[in-house]
Every structure is written in C-alpha cells, then in structure tokens.
C-alpha cells in the first residue's frame, strides 16, 4: 500500500458516498445516469468475486463490501425508491454498445484464460468507459448539479491517483499490470474535458453548463 493508492481508494469511496447522500438527502436522482450506476455495480460484481476465494486483508475485504453495497443501494434508489425522479429521457446511452465489445475483448486480451481472470479483465475494461452514459447525459441536459460535479471529480481523481500508484509500484516493487494501466489511462483521459470545466467553472463558484 502507498499514499497514492490509499488516497485513490478514499477518493473513490468519497465519490460513492457523495452520490449516495445526494440521492438520499434530496430524495432525487435528477441528472444522474442510472445506466452508469448499473455499469458500476456490474464492474464491482465481476471484479470482487474473489471475495469468495481469497482473503487479502481486512481493508481489502471491507472496502469491497462497501463498494458493492453502495453501488447496489444507489441503483435501487434510482430505479425503485426515487424512480419518479429518474430522468430516463436523457439517460439514453446505448450501453450494449459498450458491454458486448468489452465482453469480447476480455476474452481476447487477458492475463489468464480462467473464469475469474476473464471476469476481472472485463471489469477493468468496463470501468474505463462506465462513466460515458453519465457524461453523455450531462451533454444532453447541458448542465449538472454542483454536487454531481463533485461526485465526478472524486471519481475521476481516484483513477488518476491509481496511475501514480502504478508508477510508484513499478519503480519500488517492479509490479505492473499492463491491462489495468492502459484501461486506467483511457478512463482518466475521458475525464479530462470534465476536469477542465470543473476547475474553470465549478471551483470558481459557477454552475457547470455546456456548451462551455
């Protein structure tokens, strides 16, 4: 464990909690893409199946349960509890165009052709594009609530910190995982446009609205 991975995990946890609290406190999921949240729940489910097979540490296990629990709670609140506030007309990204090719890619490019490894690879690839429905929805509505932009900021920051963690681990431990690194770079690049708007607008107290 290093400072980049720890702050990355805490940033990820902060994002997940911010979203959960936003929906719970405002009793509304307006502006939130339910499709992205379904993809994140799928990412955690396919990645954390090793909860059943191996124990790494109390931190590792507890964080996995928290991520999975929060992801499903968020999906439940969007599609069941506060369904009336779900903006389905703007959440129209065709996720099947993501899931199917990524499923195929996970079979072709992986470290080991075993079920757990292929599912892990699928989850790494899927996570890199899972935010697309949310970014697409914001481009369609032309704006985002400020709390939603904080959620996106911490979510984007977490994988950027993981990139630094991988540099650290390569230098100090000789560890690297090319699949995770390439997917992590793609994932972080997808946030660049948002990061620019966040820094130039939201941090200056303005509302995030498009076109910029």
């Amino acid at each position: 464990m290093n400072i980049f991975r720890l702050t990355g995990d805490l940033s990820h946890l902060a994002a997940i909690i911010i979203l959960l609290l936003k929906i719970w406190k405002t009793r509304s999921c307006a502006g939130i893409s339910g499709k992205s949240q379904i993809l994140f729940a799928l990412v955690f489910t396919t990645r954390y199946l090793d909860l059943l097979t191996s124990f790494i540490s109390l931190y590792n296990t507890s964080m996995k349960f928290i991520y999975i629990g929060c992801a499903y709670a968020t999906v439940y609140m969007i599609y069941a509890k506060f369904k009336a506030t779900y903006d389905g007309n703007h959440d129209t990204f065709r996720v099947e165009f993501l899931v199917v090719p990524i499923g195929g890619l996970a079979f072709l490019v992986n470290h080991d052709f075993s079920p757990l490894e292929i599912l892990w690879t699928f989850s790494i690839y899927l996570e890199s594009v899972a935010i697309l429905p949310q970014l697409f929805m914001i481009s369609k509505t032309g704006e985002a609530e400020t709390i939603t932009t904080h959620y996106l900021f911490f979510l984007g920051l977490y994988r950027a910190l993981y990139l630094m963690n991988w540099i650290w681990r390569f230098y100090f431990e000789g560890f690297f995982d090319m699949i995770a690194i390439v997917a992590g770079v793609v994932q972080t690049i997808l946030y660049c446009d948002f990061f620019y708007l966040y820094v130039t607008k939201v941090l200056k107290g303005k509302k995030l609205s498009l076109p910029a």
Binding site: D50, N165, F175
Partner: peptide, 10 residues
C-alpha cells in the same frame, strides 16, 4: 504480472 498471483488492488 501480479505479486503471488493475487490481486491486491481494489
């Protein structure tokens, strides 16, 4: 390659 084949990252 993963250390001792385990995935220790979240």
């Amino acid at each position: 390659p993963q250390p001792e084949g385990k995935k220790d990252e979240l």
